[in-house]
Design a protein around this nucleic acid. Structure first.
Lengths: 197, 197, 197, 197
DNA sequence: GATGAATGAGCCTTCATTCAT
DNA sequence: GATGAATGAAGGCTCATTCAT
């Protein structure tokens, strides 16, 4: 079929898709193996348990997300460029995720973690911290550019992640057309700069 | 033990606590019954299935939340008063919920819905809509008071719910002292009025 | 409601109907109580268990059947009259039972006994023995009247019960009209007297 | 242990035995698995549910019965030969079934169908129809051989199945010796030909 | 005597995991 | 390394029976 490295990745991606679409408990190993085109027992050659597989899926998703966001903002040098790139790619990822998983447009459980799975939780919290750091860097750049002054950029960065995420979700939840969505992205940036004006 | 009405409520509250603490799948009927101090079969005298019980818990939580928020803002007549009341009570509810359930302070899954439980999902989406409406009313009051002008209050109201929620969560996640938390609440309102400034 | 004696009978008849319609396991005490218009606990005032209730229902059915058959043949003095009365009343009982219970016309399980319920089984076997004795008396009368001679009337009596029962069932299974059914009753008696002829 | 085909059959036979001995409701999957020498979950590898397993057992029993009866009468060319072969094999099957299942000799519930299991009921009714057809073929052969004349062979065939079945049951219920049983078989055929003589 | 709320034993079924091939 | 048949723990749910009122 493929080399060891590749088969592991196939399982990981199949699992990522099914976990995203159906959640942890509603996804079973048989389905994952079937979706990956391999035998049930083979999953256990690469992952020691369903829990571990889930952890690896979380890691995989986080890595993919961070890599993409970081790459996307790399080629911009200024505040606005970086911020827009961040917003656009985050929105795209939300969109792709929803399309790929056929996720109910209204489903707010994108980042659901099975209770008690502490390790996955820690990974996600750490990842959020890293994302917020990226945002903070952008905001500090904006401040250096004189767009605004604030001694609370750390707080605002944290908040901004939720604001952006909600803005991206809104597009799909409310089936906004591109123009309206762009308007909302502007409103989001505006809010940073001068509040609800 | 108690009258019929009361026992239903006892089950509901035990279930609410366990579902919140451990999630739907990790909570079993035996645990709920045990926690409610009753026999397993008794749960089925009041709720026809685990799913139905879950739905009722969601309804119960929503009702409790909305009633409390609505009551709390009722006695204020102006923008700032209502907004602060909303913020304070939402924060308190988050705090109480976390204390009551012994929820891992880092747990972001407060509003997790088991996959496929469409009815619970709808309830939650409707509830969010109602909360956002409450926020919108407050923002419109602020606008009437001349605090700001905007033709996008609807969008900002939606966003504000996440901003506030995150602000409330931060207090417990980062174990902020009261002073710092109050500072962040101020920053939140400030952001509305004049952006990151 | 009624005197003790009467309430017992109400339960018995409700149970008889439900057991006949749905079988032992598919009938529960709640349904019986409801159908009898009393509380669930009250059933246990009159019958010590579901099993005992079932036994009593079997006794009740047997008694009713035997009484009716015996009464019906009493007023006839000769072979043919008694035999026809027996056939007609047995058929009527089968029919009534089916109507009363809304029994699937194709259901062959009229006399189903829950496995392991030895006492009910014994009652039914004893009852069959009594019915066969009634048939034997009639056949012996026929022999005394010179209709046929046989040293094996005991065997034939036993067989005759099944033959008659099947003949009665056929009417409902195949939805035979009255004329055809009467023809088959004639064929049944004929067979006794001169075989398939 | 055995190949897939064989294990399915082992489960089927264990289930057939237990269902026959104890009935549907008094037989649980754990017992079947234990009796088949396998784990409980394994049953569900071969049958999707207890109901399906029951249906398959009914099919299995019918198939076995029909095959055997058809084979046994095949090598006889004349009425009496075929009829006796039918009678003998039916009796043997009743006997074996009773021995194999340790069935209470008095148990009349051989063909009991759990209420509401419509599919099993249909299978059994169809099977009876096929058996009666076999009997009809034999009787028509007898008529062609001039043993008797009748325009109601269809009715008599239907009746004959019950007559024969009762004759076979009598042997075991009343613990008849071989001679008496043979006498009764003769009486049965005689009855066809010339009635209770 | 009458009631029905409470109970828990028992059963079907699922599914993560193992292991012989 | 790959497989999937086999397993049994675990959980939702039913219902006969009890007992306090």
């Amino acid at each position: 079929m493929a080399r060891k490295k590749e088969k592991r990745e196939i399982i990981l991606m199949s699992a990522a898709e099914l976990f995203a679409k159906n959640g942890f408990h509603e996804t079973n190993i048989t389905d994952i193996a079937h979706s990956a085109g391999i035998g049930k027992g083979t999953v256990y050659e690469y992952f020691s348990s369903k829990d571990e597989l889930y952890i690896e899926v979380v890691k995989f998703n986080i890595e993919r997300y961070l890599t993409r966001i970081r790459t996307s903002i790399l080629c911009f040098n200024h505040f606005e460029g970086k911020l827009n790139a961040f917003i656009d790619h985050h929105s795209d990822i939300v969109q792709e995720n929803m399309r790929a998983t056929g996720m109910m447009i209204e489903n707010p459980n994108q980042f659901k973690i099975p209770n008690g799975m502490q390790e996955a939780l820690k990974l996600l919290l750490t990842a959020r911290f890293e994302v917020v750091q990226i945002i903070l860097d952008i905001l500090e750049l904006g401040q250096a550019e004189g767009r605004f002054s604030s001694s609370a950029l750390s707080y605002y960065s944290d908040l901004f992640f939720d604001m952006l995420n909600r803005t991206a979700m809104r597009k799909y939840i409310f089936k906004l057309d591109e123009a309206t969505f762009n308007k909302e992205k502007d409103l989001l940036v505006q809010m940073l700069v001068k509040g609800i004006n």
